[in-house]
Design a protein around this nucleic acid. Structure first.
Lengths: 333, 333
DNA sequence: CTGTTAGCGCCTTCAA
DNA sequence: TTGAAGGCGCTAACAG
């Protein structure tokens, strides 16, 4: 477990550590013969460079921190994969922190990630607070927000996300075109930007279709399957005054579907259901789910790419990258 | 982006860096008053310790490397989550590498992870080769294998996995009890330990039931959905001489189900299907999937715990931790 | 209780 | 083309 160092090689080769360093880093102010001799020796001795020492010296770690809400969630996992692939391609590693959608944990994650001196950060902010993010900005630590963002007018940050107004608009419009006039919208927590945007898209679609907005058809706070289930159960106790449900996420839709099934309501015959995200399950459900696809992997890739540019100081003013969504029509609506 | 250092604080406080270090690390060979004075000052100055420098000095990074086959796979993602949670609890971070089930990438991942001087490694080995793992052992770098392992008699390593002989045995026995005598087994690649074990469990169940083993009912090489689909398509072209399918994984089962559906065969009426892993989708399928559950999150947690003990040198001889599987009976068989 | 010295492993001047 | 010296930020002896 003790590693070979430059010094070990230098001693063995009868040169200085500087020379060894030069050889290993393939510099040109060294003779080809000694370079090759040292390279061969290093290999023979099983030398593995110490990136920690190097990082301390050159002040960059080739590592980015990733603070994500829930790694095992089929929505976030592909994002992480995209980040990892893009990072790896550029010679970066990722340190992963799972924040459980909890601001306190997010704050702690960012702090410890900074202690690890990551070159930059990728974050899906919980958004119940944002002191930690402003702190990042104040300290000029490169970071990019993923899938969510703050009001750009008030708090400018780089981010990559999808246009959720557009996504929700197309989903709602689709339902309207199918003849639905009363669409129950089960939204996420209203402090999350994506929930705000989806609500806006939903409203805009209704307005453009000349359908009034009925506040009683807008429910908020759903994010997990249980939320969708609970809210749907409540709604089903009332008189059924809607013909379709638009859910904040596919997970919420899953809960909705479960409640509907228990009530012996057929999808889409009795109630149409549209989700959001297009997680892998969506296509395999008993009634395959119509949903708005978010390019998750690409979100990760683009997130890293933008971060990389930030790190390289190629970006002056905050940049937003908006990826397109796509309405995936299956059987549920 | 330039950080405050001990030296900065020391200068400001009029003490030596050592004293500051002592205060920050809450040592007791320092007066309470100066300790508090320094702590307050450090906070005020916005000090964030440099874990890189610390790591270089104390020769540990409080970081473990995770080389996993596919982060976005619903089988592996919960494992990673388990690792992260367990690691975080002990003050560790994880550096994540996605190996795509490819030995070359795995080898590279391990090498670069070692360069980052992780304190230990968690690996789901691709098993097409194992030089990289032996190298780990030779260099006495603490590591634990996850979900897979090498023949313990030939190559001892620490690992945490499930008893897949038992898992496959219980699944096959269940099918037999349901009256199936001809069970098609679509196995994974035969160099993976879990595939070997599942095959053994399948055979044992048949033997114990006094049913002969028909090699034509054993297919290998399936791991992804497409594999299951392709193999099932092939089998369906022949005369249908089996009444049940036992798939290496739920993903393979998904492919099988798709092929069955296209052939207008009903599950379980015409053909019963049993999967393995119990990924999240399994419960939500049109015909909920009967499968063998692997405690994925726990696998990650136990993996980290064992690694931690390895790192702390609390383990002399290679240790295996076997987690129980559970047959989850749903509708598909 | 506090400071001085030294060094973790590496890279970067600067001289030779 | 090579080496010596210094230092990244931190901690661990060792003195005092």
């Amino acid at each position: 477990m003790s590693h070979i160092t430059l010094k070990d090689i230098a001693r063995e080769a009868g040169v200085s550590t500087t020379t060894v360093s030069r050889a290993l880093n393939n510099k040109n102010d060294i003779s080809i013969s000694t370079k090759q001799r040292i390279l061969k020796l290093a290999k023979k001795m099983g030398y593995t460079p110490n990136a920690i020492a190097r990082g301390l010296k050159i002040k960059q770690t080739q590592t980015v921190g990733v603070a994500i809400a829930d790694i095992s969630d089929p929505f976030f996992a592909p994002i992480v994969k995209g980040i990892e692939k893009a990072a790896h391609q550029e010679g970066y590693h990722i340190i992963l922190c799972d924040t459980d959608e909890d601001y306190k944990k997010e704050e702690e994650a960012l702090r410890t990630l900074i202690e690890k001196r990551v070159d930059g950060l990728l974050v899906t902010p919980a958004q119940t607070d944002y002191k930690d993010i402003t702190e990042l900005k104040r300290r000029k630590i490169p970071f990019v927000l993923l899938g969510r963002h703050f009001n750009f007018e008030l708090f400018e940050t780089d981010y990559v996300a999808t246009d959720d107004i557009e996504g929700a608009f197309s989903a709602t419009t689709y339902l309207i075109k199918k003849g639905h006039k009363r669409i129950l919208f089960i939204n996420g927590p209203d402090y999350v930007s994506s929930a705000k945007e989806r609500l806006a898209g939903y409203k805009r679609a209704l307005l453009e279709a000349g359908i009034g907005i009925d506040q009683s058809l807008i429910r908020k706070g759903g994010i997990k399957m249980e939320d969708g289930y609970k809210i749907m159960k409540e709604e089903l106790k009332k008189s059924l005054n809607f013909t379709a449900v638009f859910a904040y996420s596919d997970f919420v839709a899953l809960g909705v579907i479960k409640a509907l099934k228990e009530a012996h309501l057929k999808i889409p015959r009795d109630i149409a259901v549209v989700g959001y995200d297009d997680i892998e399950v969506a296509a395999f459900l008993e009634v395959p789910l119509t949903t708005v696809r978010i390019p998750k992997y690409e979100l990760g890739v683009e997130g890293f790419k933008l971060l990389k540019r930030k790190i390289a100081n190629e970006i002056s003013s905050p940049q937003k990258v908006i990826l397109p969504t796509e309405l995936i029509i299956r059987k549920s609506a």
